[in-house]
Structure formats: C-alpha cells, structure tokens
Write a protein that binds this DNA or RNA. Structure first.
Length: 592
RNA sequence: GGCGCGGUAGCUCAAUUGGUUAGAGCCCCGGACUGUCGAUCCGGAGGUUGCGGGUUCGAGUCCCGUCCGCGUCGCCA
C-alpha cells in the first residue's frame, strides 16, 4: 500500500507516529507561510499542515497551488492540535499531520462541481459527472448501506439453507407483463432474446429440479416509463421455496425485515408484521400499497349521499358508484379556497375525478361548504358522524366509480401527508397486503389479465370460482409494503399442470400458444413438481426506504434518467452499420 | 403519450410592467498573509440567457416549435 493509514483513522493516540496518507484534496487554506489541506478518502477527512519547520519554502508554495480534487500523497508525523484549534466536526479533529513530503499522484482539472460544496448541482450534471458525485459523502453512505443490506440478506438466507443459483440474462420473451428489453440474435436471424423481467420461470424450474430453497440477487429489466422509485434496470432479492404455503414465506421475510432493521438501523421491529387483505386495503386506503404511517382513512358515505338532494352525490349513488372521503383533522383553517382549488385540479388531472367536494366542520359542529345549501341539516350531521368530524376538521369527498375514488383519495392521502407532515422522518412502517385478486380486467383488450403473473395459485377455497366468476377468485399472493411503497411481492405457484392450463385458458391463451411459450414449464409441472412459492424483494427500494431517501437514483451507482439514458456513458447510442448487418437489422427513420 | 416545474457565468441563483453595458456568492487566475478549518484581504478573468423561429423601436422576460432534466398520470404480469 502506498499509504499507512486512511484519512479517517488517526486519533490522539497516534500523535508522534510517522504516517503516509493518500487522498483527494477536499479543500485547502493557504496562509502563505503555511498551507492547510483537508485530505479526503472514503473513510474521512484529515487536516494536513504543510509549513515550517518540516516543509521547506518550495514545498509550501507548491502545496498552495494544488488544485482541488487532485490525488496526493503526503508523508509526515501525526501532531496534537494546539489548544483551542481542534475541529469537533471531524473524527480526526484532535490531530493533524505535519507534512515533510508531499507529491501529486494525479492533478485534477478544475471540476464542474466539488463533493464538498453546499449547493447540490443539478441532477443532470451529477449524472454526467457521476465519478465526482459518487465522491460525496451522502452517495458513499448510501452505497455502503446498500452493500450492508445485501450482505445482511445473503447471510440471512445462507443461514436458512438457501442455495444461490444464477439464472440467464439472455432469455425468451414472454408477452405477459412489462415491455421487454430485446437483444437481437446474430446466429438466428430475426430472433431475439429478452432480458429478464424477473427470474420467475427459472426459479420454478429449480424447484422442480429439487433445489428446495433458491436465492439470487438478480438484475431485472423492464422497458416501461420511469418514476422516482423505478428504474429500467433494477435489482431483486429473488427466492423460491418448496413445500411451503404463504405463511412460511411471510414468516421468513418477517424475520429478514426485523434482522435488517436491527442490523442496519439498530431498530427493533415487532413481529409478526401486520397484515391486511387487498380488499381491506382498497376500502380503507384506496391503494394496494397503503402508507400506514398516518391516518386519513377513507370512509364510505354513499348510503347518506343516496338520501341527499345534492345531485352529484345522489346521482353517483343511484348509478351504483361511490361517495367516499377522508377527514383531514384540524385542517379547516390550513387550506384556503385557492389551495383547495389546487387539490381539486390535482385529483381531476391526475386521477380523472370530476371534482372534489369538501366541508369545514365549524365551531358549532355544523358543516360549512359552498355546496352545503344542497343538503338537509340531518344529512350533513350524518356525514359528520360517519367521518368522525370535529370542529376544525376538513372533510373531502370524491363521488365517482370505485376505481377513481380509490386512486384519487389515495393520491390525496399521500399528498396531504407530505404537506401536513403527518409522519416522522425515519419512520419505517412495514406490513403485508394479502389475498390479491387473481385477475383484473384489461379494458383495452377486453379480457382478463393476471394481476401478479400467470403462475399464481388461487386460494384453495376459491378454486371453484375459477370457473364460475374468475374476477372474484383470490390468489395466494402477498406484497410487502414499506411506507406506502411496494417493497416486495410474491405468490404460491401453481404446481398442477391442469390448473395451470385452466388459468392460461382464462387469460385467453390457447393451448398451442401456451405450449409454445411455456411448454417447458408445463412439462416440468407434469414430471413431479413440488408445491412451491416465493417472493422477490426490491433491493433498490429497500435501500432507499431504509436510508430514508426519496429517490431510487440515490442508491444506485450509475442510474438512468427518466428517458432511460445514461448521461455519463451516453447509452443508448448508435452502432456501426456492420454491427447492424451482422444482427440482420436495419433501422427505420426515427421521424415519420 | 398527457399534465406540471425547470434550463441565465464552471457551479448555485437574481434580474420590477418587455427598456441603458445581464448581476451576486462560490469556483477559477494573479497577489498579500503561519493557525486556518465556509480562512481573510486586494485585484482580475469569465455569458450565443438550452436550441430554432416569430411579435416588437427594443426580448432573459411575450408567442410557436424543439431538445434536455425532474415530478406525476397512463404504463410498470
């Protein structure tokens, strides 16, 4: 090693020791007669003094001109800082290194930004110069935490007898689910591999093969539009077990959540984690990944709405739709008409709601609203009663289809919780949502599509519903939810080829198509398939949530932009005509 | 694809109703200074206001188009 210590290592007990340090020039303070350099590496910051008597004049002069972010090596002796000159902000703040030798290992040009600067540069710049951005303490901490979390997961599953098996990246496209990233084949003209959306089919095959407990940290790819918590290329902690039911998987992951929270954050989480069904989640929170850090529960007032003379409410109820609302406690005076108009526009534009009805609970307990005159006093009283309204509360309602009230009110909950700071920073609320429907209607295609994936087993008791009314059939599926974010999801799989064929049929896939696409799985299921199931955890999201961050890019070393581009490398980029020819591809003009 | 926010010096931002030569802090360059740790002081350099068009006597500011970044809806088995 060129160095004897890191920049975070030296303490008062080292005073007098000769040391050699390497690192980046974080900042320097040039006093002419002496120069102070803060030397940085990932372990910390150490103050180096280049001055007399150890250093001669030319060395001091040279030190004064070292550009920031240069990599330097210094040799010197650890010295106690003079009284009153210590720096409490630094771990190494009680000492400094008096340098007698100093050399520039690699000078830096003036960087577009420095890791220590207080104003964070724009994200495009951070992504373009990611190597500079990754020098920032926050980024280093996030990636270190990521490493810790993954290690924690690997240890946990190793302790539980899981076997790590790698599955292919070049696979076969399956039309279900997200859009695939495709890779053209050179040796098979007009044929394409697809990058895996998840190792789903392979891990099921591994169960049939008898591996019993499989785990993998798997890269997954989905070519869909991005969000703050979504990247086109992401990491799953993927696992599968044989001879298990939902309880086994949920219990296993409960243990992992508690262990990770303890090990990484020092937090105790009491087990078992709370659970609710999908039906309950939609009814009370309008979301299949409800944020349970705060209240704002949804209340259904359709029964009262049906009795009122207010046309919007009555008409909605008469049409078989719903009037549901939330009680924003103590918020009547916090929102101006203008702000409520803003919220109205929000639910209209983002969720297709027709409007937002609202009432203030007055000091005398009556409800006030521009629309209040359309209601009989006793109906207002009933609404207040149902909503648990107290003076000072603000009641907000959507009158619409079940779906729109769910989405709109869920959106309102999240937004209001942020604006009103309804939860503690650093809180980690983990829970399960279970009993998802097997299918949902695809309005465009006019058919059923699998809510999770087509290999999900129905609840035992719902098996008969598969024929009678598939939309009511519930699945043996479970999602792990952390702070309103889907942190993982899994299912018990179908291990009976007859049931599997039945599901394919329901999904509108004829036998031939099913054979063509999933023949290997159907075959496998006919040659002794153990009952099995598993789960995949979103590693990037875990890290983001455990680190209290709000953007997935902050926990990925080299993330992509919203348009799925890499600003540092320039990917995706054009390729040579030769390459295209070899792949039997021809590009079509981008603009039509 | 829709909606919204943003793009001005290397960086972070400012610039009144459209009005003179587009400013500040940091960074950078030169100089002074041995105790700083956001060093200080003096001096200096630095701009196609993302790009293209239009309106106007005059555009950073208004209009149209376009590119890029971010958020969000659709989408994400």
């Amino acid at each position: 090693m060129l160095r004897t210590h890191t920049c975070g290592a030296l303490r008062k007990s080292d005073v007098g020791s000769p040391v050699t340090l390497c690192g980046w020039v974080d900042s320097k303070r040039d006093h002419g007669g002496a120069v102070f350099i803060d030397l940085r590496d990932r372990y910390g910051l150490t103050q180096v003094v280049i001055g007399p008597p150890e250093a001669n004049e030319s060395l001091i002069k040279q030190a004064g001109h070292v550009p920031n972010e240069s990599v330097i090596l210094i040799r010197g002796v650890v010295a106690d800082r003079l009284e009153g000159k210590t720096n409490a902000k630094l771990e190494t703040g009680e000492i400094e290194v008096r340098s007698e030798h100093f050399e520039i290992l690699s000078a830096s040009e003036t960087p577009p930004f420095t890791p220590g600067q207080s104003d964070l540069p724009g994200e495009d710049l951070r992504l373009k110069y990611r190597f500079l951005d990754l020098r920032r303490k926050e980024m280093q901490q996030a990636l270190i935490r990521r490493s810790e979390i993954i290690k924690c997961m690997r240890d946990y599953f190793a302790e539980h007898d899981f076997i790590d098996v790698e599955t292919p990246i070049l696979g076969r496209s399956t039309p279900e689910g997200a859009r695939d990233y495709l890779v053209p084949s050179r040796v098979h003209p007009s044929n394409f591999y697809a990058l895996p959306q998840s190792p789903q089919l392979y891990k099921q095959i591994l169960m049939v093969a008898g591996f019993d407990r499989y785990v993998q940290v798997a890269k997954c790819f989905r070519d869909e539009d991005l969000r703050a918590d979504r990247q086109p290329e992401f990491t799953q902690l993927d696992l599968e077990m044989s001879f298990v039911d939902s309880e086994d998987i949920i219990g296993l992951i409960d243990g992992l959540v508690a262990k990770t929270a303890k090990q990484v954050l020092g937090k105790d989480i009491s087990l078992p984690l709370p659970r609710m069904t999908y039906e309950e989640a939609m009814r009370r929170f309008g979301s299949d990944a409800p944020d349970l850090r705060f209240g704002l529960e949804i209340v259904d007032v359709t029964s009262v709405a049906a009795k009122t003379d207010f046309r919007v409410f009555r008409g909605t109820a008469d049409a078989g739709n719903f009037v549901r609302g939330i009680n924003v406690k103590d918020a009547a005076l916090k929102f101006s008409r203008r702000q409520i108009d803003e919220l109205t526009a929000f639910v209209q534009q983002d969720f297709g709601a027709k409007g937002l009805a609202w009432f203030r609970v007055e000091d005398d307990g009556t409800l006030w609203s521009p629309i209040a005159k359309n209601f009989e006093p006793e109906h207002l009283a009933e609404i207040k009663e149902l909503m648990g309204g107290e003076p000072g509360d603000l009641l907000m309602f959507l009158a619409d289809t079940w779906e729109v009230t769910c989405k709109g009110l869920s959106g309102l909950r999240k937004r209001l919780a942020v604006e009103l700071k309804l939860y503690e920073e650093g809180e980690l609320n983990c829970s399960w949502v279970t009993e998802f429907p097997m299918f949902e209607k695809d309005e465009e295609a006019g058919r059923y599509v699998a809510m999770h994936h087509p290999f999900t087993a129905p609840l035992e008791e719902d098996l008969p519903l598969l024929k009678e009314s598939p939309e009511k059939c519930r699945a043996q599926a479970y999602d792990l939810v952390i702070n309103g974010s889907e942190a993982g999801g899994g299912t018990i799989r179908i291990h009976d080829s007859k049931v599997q064929s039945q599901v394919f049929e329901l999904l509108g896939m004829d036998e031939e198509t099913a054979r063509d696409r999933f023949g290997f799985l159907l075959d496998a299921l006919r040659f002794g398939a153990p009952p099995h199931g598993g789960i995949a955890l979103g590693v990037d999201r875990w890290v983001m949530l455990f680190a209290g961050l709000e953007n997935i890019r902050e926990v990925i070393a080299f993330p992509k932009t919203q348009k799925a581009a890499d600003m540092m490398t320039g990917a995706p980029g054009e390729v040579d005509a030769d390459q295209l020819n070899e792949l039997h591809l021809r590009t079509v003009s981008a603009k039509t």
